[in-house]
Nucleic acid binder design. Structure first.
Length: 416
RNA sequence: GCGAUCGUAGCUCAGUUGGUUAGAGCGCCGGUUUGUGGUACCGGAGGUCGGGGGUUCGAGACCCCUCGAUCGCCCCA
């Protein structure tokens, strides 16, 4: 490598080969499944005015206070590379009058940016698939969204991952619970970890999923959200769990599961690898593969009317790690030219082959005597060798592949 | 922001208590062999040992600084 070559930015990745194929497989599967659930495709800008995120996500959150890629454009506006999809989607919903389409089922995927220390399964430019239902306040929306997530994971062939489900209640329930937690943990403040003492001020709900053993001792007996749920909130949650059971989606109650961002209400969920599973090992300390919840308060924080909505997002890199490495299919045909006089004829043949929908590789360079060996090494179903006016076909596969390819080849005028 | 581990050919890595011109496999290029053939062999290109400073007669190995990567904490997908 030249010392003069600029390096890639920290936390960005150049993906190629089996990992890139796995990445593509995740996206392709998502595209297929979202159509089954009739989610419409949406495209949003990669950057927005900074306030879109700061108002939607919450000034005090880590995402906004220290993880945003913000910059000033030439007009002096503060812009930010999107750290998540939801805020931008909400902004688009409000500014485009998408209320007329409500309830609106949207799916998207793409790059997101967060200024964080990179580690396993976590990058500064990362990629997510995302699904949202906007303008739907009924628990059925939560169920449909979760059923889609569940089916997606199944179709990706991912096993050993379980849906952890909780409710944060409505605004009143959530505030009462929060007060209860502050009171409870406040009494034992001195015995909590330093981090949690700080969390007590900023985000007391977060103490519940602290990894520090000093905190865990108190978490078990902490007040539960269930003690604070209003009748409506409880009924809502029961509808969601009932719908999941009816849909055949397995789930597990996770009383300590909370969401990091301010806008969540009611349903909160994460798909997490089971302890000791292969999936858990593959992900390192980044355990959540898919997370989301209901965010009924978000639209108002952007100055819009109260609009109920639910959504989830999943890291493509993390899903790709669980899917494992994948290979591109081997080519149907390799055309190898063993005599330079045949180069043009070979080019013509390979074009014709591709035009009827067969995949083909073309080998016409390097030592002539080694070209056939190269062709063999590629590992195609069929080799078409061309030398000095002579053309030979060699089948390297039997059965279906051979039939399919040979009938296509013979439909061409390849002068074999 | 904090901590730990690690930086030797394009890739994966060796390099013994510091001691001659720094090695292997794979890949690439060329040649011989084979000649319906994924063979074997020979040869070649490619490294300021991440960078800078220091210790030493002598540093890829030891010390300091710096840059980068990886993994973890915080937080999160």
């Amino acid at each position: 490598m030249s010392k003069n070559t600029p390096k890639a930015i920290r936390g960005t990745q150049d993906i190629f080969g089996p990992e890139a194929e796995a990445f593509a497989f995740v996206v392709e599967t998502f595209e297929r499944v979202r159509k089954l659930y009739r989610f419409r495709r949406a495209e949003m800008p990669v950057f927005e005015k900074t306030e879109v995120f700061s108002r939607a996500i919450g000034e005090t959150t880590d995402v906004v206070s220290k993880e945003m890629y913000s910059f000033e454009d030439r007009g002096g506006d503060s812009l930010t590379l999107r750290p998540e999809f939801t805020a931008g989607i909400a902004r688009a919903y409000l500014t485009n009058g998408w209320q007329q389409h409500a309830p609106m089922k949207l799916a998207t995927h793409g790059a997101l940016f967060r200024y964080e220390r990179p580690q396993k399964g976590r990058y500064r430019q990362f990629h997510q698939i995302d699904a949202e239902i906007l303008g739907a306040g009924e628990p059925q929306a939560d169920v449909e969204l979760l059923a889609m997530a569940d089916q997606l994971l199944k179709e990706l062939g991912i096993e050993g991952v379980t849906l952890h489900l909780n409710t944060l209640g409505d605004a009143a329930s959530r505030d009462a619970w929060r007060s209860g937690l502050i009171e409870y943990f406040g009494k034992v403040r001195g015995e909590l970890s330093e981090d949690s003492q700080e969390r007590l001020e900023k985000n007391p709900l977060r103490i519940l999923d602290s990894k520090d053993p000093r905190d865990r001792a108190f978490v078990a007996d902490a007040p539960k959200i269930d003690e604070y749920l209003s009748d409506d909130a409880l009924a809502f949650f029961e509808s969601v769990t009932g719908g999941l059971d009816a849909s055949g989606v397995k789930w597990k109650r996770a009383e300590s599961l909370v969401r990091g961002l301010d806008y969540y209400r009611h349903t909160a969920f994460e798909f997490i690898p089971d302890e000791g599973s292969a999936a858990a090992g593959a992900l390192g300390s980044q355990s959540t593969v898919l997370g989301g919840g209901r965010y009924d308060g978000l639209m108002e924080s952007l100055g819009g009317p109260a609009t109920p909505a639910v959504g989830w997002a999943a890291g493509i890199e993390r899903l790709a790690m669980l899917v494992g490495e994948r290979d591109i299919d081997k080519p149907d045909v390799v055309v190898v030219v063993e005599d330079d006089k045949m180069t043009a004829a070979g080019q013509k043949a390979v074009s014709a082959i591709r035009s009827v929908g067969l995949s083909a590789e073309f080998i016409a360079s390097g030592g002539k005597k080694k070209r056939f060996d190269k062709a063999v090494k590629v590992g195609s179903h069929v080799i078409l060798a061309m030398s000095d006016g002579e053309r030979r076909l060699r089948y390297q596969s039997e059965g279906e592949d051979k039939e399919r390819i040979s009938s296509a080849l013979w439909s061409l005028d390849l002068d074999l």
